[in-house]
Write a protein that binds this DNA or RNA. Structure first.
Length: 721
DNA sequence: CGATCATGCAATCAT
DNA sequence: TGATTGCATGATCGA
């Protein structure tokens, strides 16, 4: 028997419901964002940002779904894992965990029939999650892992990491029955509960409320829709920290409605990832990497790490752990907006390629392959191999692709509800198949030379696992602005036409992504090593022929080596996109009573990446290797150049908020309504993972940003705890 | 009003 | 003479 273990409190959103229709993340206003960013200058942003991402990998590794024939219905049970044995205290501890796990792993067997009830109760319960709480797994321990410790150690959701999370897999028993029976039971149970509670499910100690009921129904619906495609194994690894859920729910507006949305997102995510994983397995039985070294000798100023990996196709996002994503529906989504975790006003688009959180998620990993619509469309002539859009936007079929949504322009948003249908799944899978096929063909072209001269100064690189990746083609990541956007927020192209206007994503990013993905599967978590230092929206003077980039003062002083002499120091910057190492100089100019910090010798980097005004760079440090990494992110607006100008102009103020270290510049572009801090923060997260191609509608962009903030905040809170 | 930073432009260097 | 370097100035924004 397995059980879906949820702690009622875990799913219980604080705050007042979903009142915030237009802006779920309004809560992440400047105040919050300020808190988040100001307080954590010392923090590893990437890790923080990876609230979901870092831990997503496990999700991606869902085993092929098991079609167990067992007739035993899976049970769902709630399990709370927290520092406190009382679920009641979970809300504030942040150390509690929501775990959906299989009973198979439990020592305590639960009544198969009761289990579903428990699940329902758990899902519907807003109060206690103590329902069916296994004695051995109780609060403080999951699979031998102390939840509290984990939380404290990671401070963020580790969906990927072993035992820390929400483990939906528990819903099913690996060897057991198909979901069919379970569904029936669930339905019956629900009916019963509803009847008994007048629409409110109170069992399990939770407060009976319609939303709670909805929660259960959502889950049930999901199970029904995916019973053939999702197995216990698929869910087994899904683990979400309670505190994370709480925070997420809060950010979604709080209340049960928020929890419902969150649940949908999670389920969607599980489904999506499962599909992806499966797809990969089906088509790439041998995921092993093929190490290829490509000495770079063409460019004296840069160095190509010895270890160049040309990973075989794998669609796991390298930085899955880093989420930046999007959640909710947006104007372009024709699916079921109501199910969106975010308000109907539309909202988040997945910015990065991180599929882990997939459609509704976030990611911010350094690589990001977010592509314009056409790229998403496997059938599209404009489709770029290597960018499994379907993986990135599994739920965002391109125009004419059918898919789950009905939108004529193609759905770009995650549809938790409608997309979860079996029909939709089939379509998606079909698309993925097509895509993979196409992708494979393209991979052959991926291995070009692109190495450049070795940099004698580059100390690192090498075969160490710190080498991020390799790739070819345009190194820079991409971020697209929607045609209609005037102030900057990157947006997902609303439709194909827009897509065609944007540049094609670099092929290289995918290589990197795959590499990282592979690494991740092998236990390497690059995102854990990278620390976001700063980012800078490139100005004309930065991309001109001066070969220097003015760096934001505060971030430079905070995160880069202290400079004693105005001549500064030489810094080897590894281009994340190309793995090249650029020997740059970090220095400052006296400026009045202050200093102006510069990164010099950036000309080649800029050119190589094709960076222009309005694009931006993000600098990270690899905490493990002590090296610096730089990523160029392209931002292209399909529209007239003036748009770009405008965006750039607006950026002028962003930096203002020094407290939002490093984020500043970009923030302005993202949103004009929210505070700079908040915008900046969000954007930083996004850029952090630099979506190779990101396009967001203005609104969505803002939502996205807010979501990023939310993620950051969540992490921050955990850390604070 | 101070801090930050984009950039104009003069000084210097390289060819 | 063009490119590069470095300083100074002014725009912008928050306090």
């Amino acid at each position: 028997m397995k059980g879906l273990q949820l702690h009622g409190e875990d799913l219980h959103a604080t705050g007042g419901g979903v009142a915030n229709e237009t802006n779920n993340f309004d809560g992440m206003d400047e105040d919050h964002s300020r808190e988040i960013w100001l307080e954590r200058e010392q923090e590893d942003l990437i890790d923080n940002a990876s609230i979901f991402c870092d831990d997503f990998p496990p999700l991606l590794d869902f085993p092929c779904m098991s079609s167990s024939s067992s007739t035993q219905a899976p049970s769902v049970k709630a399990m709370a894992c927290s520092s406190s044995t009382s679920s009641a205290s979970s809300s504030s501890s942040g150390t509690s965990w929501v775990v959906l796990r299989s009973d198979a792993e439990d020592h305590n067997q639960h009544d198969p029939i009761d289990a579903p009830a428990a699940a329902v109760a758990a899902l519907s319960s807003t109060g206690s999650m103590e329902i069916s709480q296994p004695s051995d797994q109780g609060n403080s321990n999951i699979d031998g892992v102390d939840c509290i410790d984990v939380m404290e150690n990671f401070g963020c959701i580790d969906l990927l990491d072993s035992n820390d999370f929400f483990d939906p897999s528990s819903i099913f028993h690996p060897d057991e029955n198909p979901l069919g029976d379970f569904h029936q039971q669930q339905e019956q149970r629900l009916s019963s509960l509803q009847m008994n509670n007048n629409g409110g499910i109170t069992q399990g100690g939770g407060g009976g409320e319609e939303p709670a009921d909805d929660l259960a129904m959502v889950f049930l619906e999901w199970l029904k829709s995916n019973k053939e495609s999702v197995s216990a194994e698929d869910l087994r690894n899904v683990k979400i920290k309670k505190s994370t859920i709480e925070c997420a729910a809060r950010r979604l507006g709080g209340g049960k409605e928020a929890m419902k949305q969150l649940l949908k997102l999670i389920l969607e995510w599980v489904q999506t990832n499962h599909l992806q994983k499966r797809r990969i397995k089906d088509q790439n039985p041998n995921p092993n990497l093929n190490p290829i070294r490509q000495p770079d000798q063409t460019n004296p100023s840069c160095y190509t790490p010895p270890s160049m990996w040309i990973p075989q196709p794998t669609y796991v996002d390298p930085f899955q752990g880093q989420v930046i994503g999007y959640m909710g529906h947006d104007p372009y989504v024709h699916g079921a907006p109501n199910i969106s975790p975010y308000p109907p006003t539309g909202d988040f688009h997945i910015l990065d390629s991180c599929q882990s959180w997939s459609p509704s998620q976030f990611t911010m990993p350094p690589n990001y392959n977010s592509f314009p619509d056409n790229n998403f469309n496997p059938n599209s002539s404009g489709y770029v191999a290597g960018y499994p859009n379907q993986y990135q936007y599994p739920y965002l079929p391109g125009p004419g692709q059918g898919g789950t949504s009905t939108g004529g322009g193609g759905e770009r948003l995650v549809r938790l509800g409608s997309s979860a249908t079996k029909e939709a799944r089939k379509k998606r899978m079909a698309r993925q198949r097509r895509f993979l096929s196409h992708h494979r063909n393209h991979n052959h072209h991926q291995n070009g030379n692109q190495n450049h001269g070795a940099d004698p100064h580059a100390t690192r690189l090498g075969n160490d696992d710190c080498t991020p990746a390799v790739g070819e083609g345009t190194p820079a990541s991409w971020l697209y602005w929607s045609p209609g956007v005037t102030s900057g927020p990157p947006v997902l192209p609303p439709d194909a036409p827009a897509v065609h206007q944007v540049d094609r994503p670099p092929m290289q990013a995918q290589g990197y992504q795959r590499q990282v993905s592979s690494d991740r599967r092998q236990g390497w978590k690059p995102e854990k090593n990278l620390k976001f230092l700063l980012q800078k929206v490139l100005k004309q003077s930065d991309v001109g022929n001066l070969g220097r980039i003015v760096l934001p003062k505060k971030e430079a002083e905070t995160h880069l080596p202290e400079l004693d002499a105005r001549d500064g120091i030489s810094i080897a910057m590894e281009d994340i996109g190309t793995s090249r190492v650029w020997n740059m100089r970090y220095r400052f100019w006296p400026n009045n009573k202050s200093r102006m910090y510069l990164l010099e010798n950036t000309g080649d980097f800029i050119k190589t990446n094709g960076l222009q005004e309005g694009d931006f760079i993000v600098i990270y440090s690899d905490v493990k290797c002590g090296k610096y990494l730089i990523r160029g992110v392209k931002v292209r607006q399909p529209g007239p150049k003036s748009e770009t100008k405008k965006a750039g102009k607006s950026q002028r103020n962003q930096h203002v908020n020094s407290s939002s270290a490093g984020v500043n510049n970009i923030s302005h572009n993202i949103s004009s309504s929210s505070t700079q801090t908040s915008k900046a923060s969000s954007f930083r997260l996004a850029s952090l993972h630099s979506a190779s191609v990101v396009s967001l509608a203005p609104e969505p962009a803002e939502k996205y940003i807010k979501f990023c903030l939310f993620l950051s905040r969540t992490t921050q809170q955990k850390q604070a705890e």
